[in-house]
């Protein structure tokens, strides 16, 4: 048997407690400012939608939050501790990231891919529930039906759900989702955001990059709007999703209407 260092299982944060904060983050790659003063924070129990036009720096900010890229200025703190103080193994028990495109070099069965999400917990007490967690994650994403099929043979939408199941199986208090709805049909888009809401209700913090503003309005607690690598607005849905601000940021006239039944804002581009 191999000896392992004692591995801590992070305690569940209290609802409302700050999980992650990024303050005035700057990142320059190849002479181009990808991030120039982006700020975001997420507390336990909330869904934060990261919005903005193409090239606004949403994915870049997410990779800074995940610890992939080290910002040139500004600071990222996880549980009040600077992010670069965490080792990869410890970080993997605190946050999970769903990448934009799910790739796989070898044809592992989908169920095996989801089980990979449990890797950070190997050797901890949490490993005992691996099977249950994997089965739950696949059920939540409606991907249990193709657990046996090779991941590489699945359709784009199926892959996206399996990738999400893997991230859910990681069971971290912080979830970073990069366009989780991009490859999905209407039904599965709703499913994914319901899952995100359920995780927030269970006390996790969720940051989700979205392009569909109405979807963000319906499911997010708070919206962070990025433009040109900087945060231009951060607040509750009703405050940020206003027609003048969105029209300016997206460079296209936009109208915001309340849903006739629920009152939730619907964001539509103005069309002739």
């Amino acid at each position: 048997m191999r000896l392992r260092r004692h591995q801590e299982i992070p305690e569940r944060p209290l609802p409302g407690a700050e999980l992650l904060s990024a303050e005035a983050v700057r990142l320059t790659v190849g002479g181009r400012d990808l991030l120039a003063g982006a700020s975001v924070r997420v507390a336990a129990g909330e869904v934060v939608a990261l919005l903005g036009p193409n090239g606004a720096g949403k994915s870049t900010l997410l990779s800074v939050l995940a610890g992939d890229a080290v910002p040139a200025a500004g600071e990222v703190r996880l549980h009040g501790r600077p992010l670069d103080g965490y080792g990869p193994a410890e970080l993997a028990r605190h946050r999970a990231l769903l990448p934009q495109a799910a790739a796989l070099s070898f044809p592992f069965p989908a169920g095996e891919v989801v089980r990979m999400g449990r890797a950070p917990w190997t050797g901890t007490a949490a490993a005992a529930e691996d099977e249950t967690v994997v089965a739950e994650a696949m059920a939540a994403t409606e991907s249990a039906a193709f657990a046996e099929r090779p991941f590489t043979a699945l359709s784009g939408g199926e892959r996206a759900r399996v990738a999400l199941a893997r991230v859910l199986a990681q069971r971290t208090p912080l979830l970073l989702l990069d366009e989780p709805t991009a490859a999905l049909d209407l039904r599965h888009q709703e499913l994914v955001l319901r899952v995100a809401r359920a995780r927030a209700a269970a006390g996790d913090g969720v940051v989700v990059v979205l392009h569909d503003l109405s979807l963000a309005a319906a499911y997010a607690d708070r919206v962070v709007l990025l433009a040109g690598g900087a945060t231009v607005a951060d607040g509750p849905v009703a405050e940020v999703l206003r027609a003048p601000l969105l029209s300016e940021v997206y460079g296209h006239p936009v109208e915001v209407l309340p849903h006739p039944r629920t009152g939730v804002p619907l964001v539509l581009p103005e069309r002739d």
């Binding site: 990779s63 995940a66 992939d68 990869p88 193994a89 410890e90 970080l91 993997a92 028990r93 946050r95 999970a96 990231l97 990448p99 799910a102 790739a103 796989l104 070099s105 070898f106 592992f108 891919v113 990979m116 999400g117 890797a119 950070p120 893997r166 990681q170």
Partner: peptide, 12 residues
Amino acid sequence: ALGERPARHLGV
């Protein structure tokens, strides 16, 4: 096999 970044996110 998931890719470099996802592997790192899983603690490798």
